[in-house]
């Protein structure tokens, strides 16, 4: 009796129910898609859609970590673009400069994230203001660095990672799944992960239990910047070059993926598994809308409505528990 009640209690939490709901919605979308286009549910197409979701999913790792602390990162757009433009600028498509380029791209992202974390933790700047400001700073720095015209292209090995296949499976999907396992393990099985949830749930309690809140916040934003840098490099491989504004398409979907995955925007609740499914759902949704020739305008409207619907639905899950 108590056992079932406990089970039901833990089962009713949005953290579990939200990813299930989104998985269900994704299956529905696949059914719709297969009516519209033959072979939409074929394994190769599912893998293709997973590959298309990977960049968004990786950018959303950072957003998940930051939202778990109760913050938000609006600087993804130009962190992604900056990393990509630095990467192609250094490598110029040259395999020999690959590692310097990768280090520079990841470094730029991580530094921007570190600055975000320092401003938010040490100067108490609100995450919205800090990361919006950082987005502009990165935009300015990127424009000055590239003088408005990004140069270079992606080295072949990055193109291979972004678009190649390992047997029947796209390499980028393996990378994404590998990262997802590592991130989930870190969130749920390490002390650092517990601290993250604890800071998000209650900064006061967290401080009283001896956690260095500032350090946790700085680490979270640094991870977010690093993930944006990684997304920038991988997306460069996908599009084989860098261009201004290439990161804009990640900001809203990354936040949406986290929210659809059942994380609370107030922090302390959520999982990367949820975000993973959320990112995949958004990509499948975009693809289905593209099949029926829905314009970008209507797509934006549907995106907004989906976010609102998800938040309202998940709150109903929370109420059920109480």
């Amino acid at each position: 009796m108590t056992n079932t009640r406990r089970m039901r209690n833990s089962f009713a939490r949005p953290v579990v129910l939200a990813p299930l709901t989104i998985t269900g919605c994704t299956v529905l979308l696949f059914l719709v898609g297969s009516i519209l286009a033959r072979g939409f549910m074929a394994p190769s197409n599912v893998l293709m859609l997973l590959a298309l979701s990977a960049d968004l999913g990786i950018a959303a790792i950072g957003e998940t970590v930051v939202i778990l602390t109760g913050g938000i990162d609006l600087s993804i757009a130009w962190n992604v673009t900056a990393a990509s433009i630095i990467f192609t600028g250094i490598t110029q498509g040259n395999e020999g400069h690959l590692w310097i380029g990768v280090a520079a791209g990841l470094g730029v992202g991580a530094l921007a994230g570190l600055a975000n974390g320092l401003g938010i933790a040490k100067l108490n700047i609100s995450p919205i203001v800090m990361t919006l400001g950082m987005n502009n700073i990165m935009q300015g720095l990127t424009l000055i660095y590239s003088q408005g015209t990004p140069s270079g292209s992606a080295p072949a090995s990055i193109k291979e990672i972004a678009t190649g296949w390992l047997g029947p499976i796209p390499i980028i999907v393996l990378v994404w799944i590998g990262l997802a396992i590592v991130v989930s393990a870190c969130l749920h099985a390490t002390r650092g992960g517990r601290y993250l949830y604890s800071v998000g749930e209650s900064p006061m309690v967290s401080r009283l239990t001896g956690i260095d809140n500032d350090f946790v916040l700085i680490a979270a934003y640094t991870v977010s910047g690093f993930c944006a840098g990684l997304t920038g490099i991988l997306f460069t491989g996908f599009s084989s070059m860098s261009f201004l504004g290439m990161g804009d398409q990640f900001v809203l979907p990354a936040i949406a993926a986290v929210v659809l995955g059942g994380a609370s925007i107030y922090g302390g609740r959520g999982s990367y598994a949820g975000t993973f499914v959320g990112a995949f759902f958004l990509t499948v949704l975009t693809t289905v809308l593209a099949i029926v020739n829905i314009s970008i305008g209507f797509r934006n409207i549907i995106y907004g409505l989906v976010i609102i619907a998800a938040v309202l639905l998940y709150r109903a899950y929370t109420r059920e528990r109480e």
Binding site: L252, G297, N300, I302, Y303, G304, I308
Partner: peptide
């Protein structure tokens, strides 16, 4: 709804509306 989430959603919706009426 938290203001940041609500207005992030309507931001996307208004961007869409503007594009639909004036591509």
């Amino acid at each position: 709804l938290p203001p940041i989430l609500a207005t992030l959603a309507t931001m996307s919706i208004f961007q869409g509306v503007a594009l639909v009426i004036l591509p």
